[in-house]
Design a binder for these strands. Sequence first.
DNA 1: TAGATTGTTAATCGATTAACAATC
DNA 2: TAGATTGTTAATCGATTAACAATC
Lengths: 205, 205
Amino acid sequence: MKAEKIPDIIVGRLPIYLRALQRMADNGLKTTSSQELGEHVGISAAQIRKDISQFGDFGKQGTGYSIAYLLDKLREILKVDRIWEVALIGAGDMGHALARYQGFTNRGFHIVMVFDNDKEKVGEKINGFIIEDTEKMVERLKSAGIKMAMLTVPAQAAQGVTDKLVQAGVKAILNYAPINLNVPPSVKVQYIDPSTHLQRMTYYL
Amino acid sequence: MKAEKIPDIIVGRLPIYLRALQRMADNGLKTTSSQELGEHVGISAAQIRKDISQFGDFGKQGTGYSIAYLLDKLREILKVDRIWEVALIGAGDMGHALARYQGFTNRGFHIVMVFDNDKEKVGEKINGFIIEDTEKMVERLKSAGIKMAMLTVPAQAAQGVTDKLVQAGVKAILNYAPINLNVPPSVKVQYIDPSTHLQRMTYYL
DNA sequence: TAGATTGTTAATCGATTAACAATC
DNA sequence: TAGATTGTTAATCGATTAACAATC
């Protein structure tokens, strides 16, 4: 185990391992090997061992990894051994789909607030949440100490909302708007843009 | 310009450049430089010049790049100088949101079919499309010659549907199900899993 | 014990950056 | 012309793979 700074590219693979291990556990498996896990996620066994060994000696020679133990450790490393409260900004179609999405449960996340700047929508209920006015967002996020947000507003509104999120102390943004966001280095952004993802594949067609 | 094989990591950045340039064009800008584009997308000027120069000499010393010309070239390279017909499999919340999504227009994609295996949903209309039965999917995709699909079915159904897509000749899959898909090397997959994306950020919180 | 598989080292491979001649 | 910026080369940096001693 090394205590040095872990490259971003390795951190990025851990959730993939976590997801595959979770699935193995759900299927009743008890142990796995770097070889087997690698086949599941399409990554070489050597790389998986190297990645995991950055954080500790979690395996056993001859038998591999205890799935339950490795799951625990990965959740701990990724800090998803707890539930993170997430704000959802933008109550359009995509916002609605995320508000109803079941896939956050057991993965460490829970939507607790929904905002929209459309006065017509404010006050409406969506999956049990009352849509709140974006004008009150900074105050609400600050007082609730929320660190994560999902952004499903139109592209032209995204940077403005982002500035407010940063101001409110949000440190991680999952951005569905098809635009690059400008944030200070202390704030992380992940991008989900279906068109961009599709365009990564058309080159090969 | 080199005619050699282009690394996947470079191809993956082109849609980001394309999106930023599109935005500049929308804002009425005519030319840009690797420096300026780099500031927009958070990539070094040197890398942008190197990436672009893999495909040709599209810039001019002293003045930079014509935005319109570079847009044309990037669209051509990425093969989004045409409209790709895309099938949507899974008419749940996420499927509905994608069926209504406006962001595919002008980016090279058009949803033309929607499938679901729920007999209750089959026949229903969603954004003008009639939801079709997954049983008829392979035949329908084959005869329409569709090469791209978006998958928004539950995780436990995803691999089965994927096998049928591959059988139908689909070569690019945008997978929203939180599971790794097994496909032949000739088929490309891109993954969108909000929980995985969020978990890439919690490590830094 | 024999077989399997880890963690780690060294070698290889690939990607990024810095620098600058060419030239618009 | 002078200033700006490209395309490209060489240097640096980082990531992946192969191999194997350690050991369960």
